[in-house]
Amino acid sequence: MSGNGNAAATAEENSPKMRVIRVGTRKSQLARIQTDSVVATLKASYPGLQFEIIAMSTTGDKILDTALSKIGEKSLFTKELEHALEKNEVDLVVHSLKDLPTVLPPGFTIGAICKRENPHDAVVFHPKFVGKTLETLPEKSVVGTSSLRRAAQLQRKFPHLEFRSIRGNLNTRLRKLDEQQEFSAIILATAGLQRMGWHNRVGQILHPEECMYAVGQGALGVEVRAKDQDILDLVGVLHDPETLLRCIAERAFLRHLEGGCSVPVAVHTAMKDGQLYLTGGVWSLDGSDSIQETMQATIHVPAQHEDGPEDDPQLVGITARNIPRGPQLAAQNLGISLANLLLSKGAKNILDVARQLNDAH
């Protein structure tokens, strides 16, 4: 009898209710805020589980004197976190989706994509230029951005401005803007500013005609071990179906173009009346040469937790077992079709030249 009692006690200790789920994140304040929001949602869904947040620095956090596009290494903000995932030191990792490459290392998958916040870019102005827009900034004003995508589009749109690289986390960039006289304004992701509670610093939100956004911008991705079915089931509740389908289309477009950090590629997606609209573009580094096109596809946005595919093969690095396969494939095909259209119009040449120029500098 006593033996059975011990077995029952052991089973209770090993039951999922007692389990601590370890969540990996970057150390920056924004990353911690984003991770806290994901953990809060998981806690609400699984009140019996405990969650421990483990923060670590990544290569991208450490190399702050070089433009991201020049470092010449993929997975700048993800490699150390993936290493911890691989060694079973954490069970899942919360990322900004735009930091996750469209091809993940073997053994990993994006197990959830959370509801997207505003994906557009924002302009934050130096205190002396508050009330201005990019259009009304004085001639030769210097605007800071760490992104080739932003610089290429904005140089084309605002030729009277000069664009220079600015690195560091959000706090560091804002301090550089406010305390030094080098920059009249800087460009940042609206979602990051909003998550930090800095709505009052948003001086201008850039519309798609001015600057399309990065693939996955404004959404959070939760990376897990691809074979860890328990954790895949656990994080599945975080999937937002519309965000998922938009981001599958965007990531398929980028992957098929073979774009990345070192080339200016941008997108804009919208879901309306059962249609998914995808606009994508590529630019030369100075913005003088560009190709942009829009395509659409009829896609039914499923309700969360309709029964999805059981075999769960990944699409552009994403596993969404609780979302039907048909809409996911339709979104992926839309991204591939748009990429093929741009490639047929000469996108590869623009991107190759951009890559060579970026590598040469």
Score class of each variant (00 low, 15 high):
L97R: 02
K79G: 12
V263D: 04
I336D: 00
G144F: 01
R201A: 02
A252T: 15
K74I: 08
Q356Y: 05
I231W: 07
T58P: 06
V301L: 07
H239M: 05
S288L: 13
A112S: 09
V282T: 08
A360S: 09
I205R: 07
A67S: 01
A151V: 10
T25Q: 03
H239Q: 07
R19S: 08
D312M: 07
V267I: 01
I318V: 15
A40P: 04
P159G: 09
T59N: 06
R201P: 04
I166G: 04
P264L: 06
A252W: 01
S146F: 11
E293R: 09
K272S: 14
L81P: 06
P119F: 10
W198F: 11
I53L: 12
S288E: 14
Y277T: 06
E82I: 02
L234K: 12
I350N: 08
G216T: 02
V39L: 09
S141P: 04
L193V: 07
R164A: 11
E306P: 07
V224A: 09
L244A: 03
D121K: 02
E89F: 12
V235R: 02
V224T: 15
R32M: 12
I299E: 11
N349I: 06
F158A: 10
K43P: 03
G218W: 02
R251Q: 00
I248N: 06
D233T: 08
L351N: 01
Q204R: 09
C247F: 05
L68A: 09
I166M: 13
H120F: 15
D65F: 10
K87M: 13
F51H: 09
D359V: 05
G168C: 02
Q155H: 12
S37M: 14
S69C: 13
Q314V: 11
E117D: 13
E162N: 06
D178V: 10
S288P: 12
G308L: 11
I186D: 04
G259N: 00
F77N: 02
V123S: 08
S290E: 15
A320V: 10
N349M: 11
H95R: 02
C261N: 02
I336F: 10
Q217A: 06
H300G: 13
T25I: 05
G287F: 05
G72K: 03
L234F: 07
V23C: 05
T319A: 07
V301M: 05
L42Y: 04
V23H: 04
V20G: 07
L276N: 00
I63T: 00
A122F: 03
E310P: 03
S165M: 06
R195L: 10
K27S: 12
I186E: 15
K74P: 06
N118S: 14
Y46S: 08
A40W: 10
A31I: 00
L81T: 10
E182G: 15
A31H: 00
S284G: 11
A347K: 01
K70H: 09
P159R: 10
Q229H: 12
P309S: 10
I63A: 13
V224L: 15
L351P: 09
G72M: 09
G221V: 05
T172I: 07
G203S: 15
G281Y: 00
E242C: 02
L278G: 09
L188M: 07
K79P: 08
P127Q: 14
T172W: 04
P101R: 03
E73I: 07
T109L: 04
L92E: 02
V38M: 07
Q292F: 08
I336A: 07
R251F: 02
H120N: 12
P324T: 14
L188C: 11
Q180P: 10
P309Q: 10
E306Q: 12
V235A: 02
T25E: 09
A270I: 07
L104S: 10
S288N: 07
G24W: 01
T269L: 03
S146R: 10
M56F: 15
F129D: 09
H120M: 13
I187F: 09
R201L: 14
I350H: 15
P138N: 11
Q180M: 10
V237Q: 04
R116W: 04
A214V: 02
S290Y: 12
L148R: 10
I33S: 11
Q328P: 10
V39S: 07
C247W: 04
K128N: 15
F163M: 11
G218R: 01
Q34D: 03
I187A: 08
G218D: 01
A360D: 12
T102C: 04
T102A: 11
M212W: 02
L193Y: 00
G168R: 02
E250D: 15
R19I: 12
P324G: 06
F253E: 00
L276Y: 13
E86R: 12
N333C: 01
T298V: 13
L154A: 06
V222K: 02
H160N: 13
T298G: 03
H83E: 13
I113E: 00
Q229N: 13
E117S: 06
P119R: 04
I54W: 04
D289T: 15
T25F: 04
G308M: 03
T35M: 10
S96R: 03
L137F: 07
F129V: 09
N340L: 10
L81D: 04
D312G: 02
T294F: 09
K227Q: 09
G111H: 00
A303S: 10
V301T: 02
E242Q: 10
G308P: 05
V282D: 04
Q204K: 08
G346N: 06
V282L: 07
A44F: 12
L278H: 03
T59R: 08
L206A: 03
I110W: 02
M212N: 02
A122D: 06
V94E: 03
V123N: 00
K348G: 14
L76C: 14
T190S: 05
S284D: 04
S28T: 13
Q29F: 06
G144D: 04
T145Q: 04
E306N: 15
W198C: 13
N118R: 11
L161N: 04
K70Q: 08
Q275A: 00
K176G: 09
K27A: 13
V143S: 03
G287K: 01
R225A: 03
E73R: 11
T136Y: 11
K132A: 09
N169F: 05
L343Q: 07
P47L: 06
L238E: 03
T58A: 08
F125Y: 15
E293V: 07
L104V: 09
A320R: 03
I21K: 01
T25S: 11
F253I: 13
G48C: 11
F129S: 07
I33L: 11
R325D: 12
V222L: 14
L85F: 04
T190F: 00
A84T: 12
R149G: 01
P47Y: 07
I350T: 02
R173I: 02
Q217S: 08
L232F: 12
G197C: 13
T298C: 07
T269K: 06
D312A: 12
V265A: 15
L68H: 06
K87D: 13
Q229T: 12
L177E: 01
L161T: 08
D311A: 14
V202L: 12
S147I: 08
S45I: 15
V38G: 02
S290W: 15
D228C: 12
K70L: 08
S288Q: 14
S57Y: 09
F125R: 03
A152V: 13
L92W: 02
D91R: 04
P105Q: 11
T145A: 14
I63F: 13
C114N: 09
V123Y: 03
D307L: 00
L134D: 02
W198H: 11
L49E: 00
S45R: 11
L343K: 05
L42T: 04
I53E: 07
R246H: 05
S165I: 09
P208E: 01
E52W: 04
R22W: 14
L338V: 03
Q181Y: 14
V353P: 08
D36K: 14
T294G: 14
F158I: 12
P106V: 14
T279G: 09
L154T: 07
G131A: 11
P101F: 06
L351D: 13
R173Q: 02
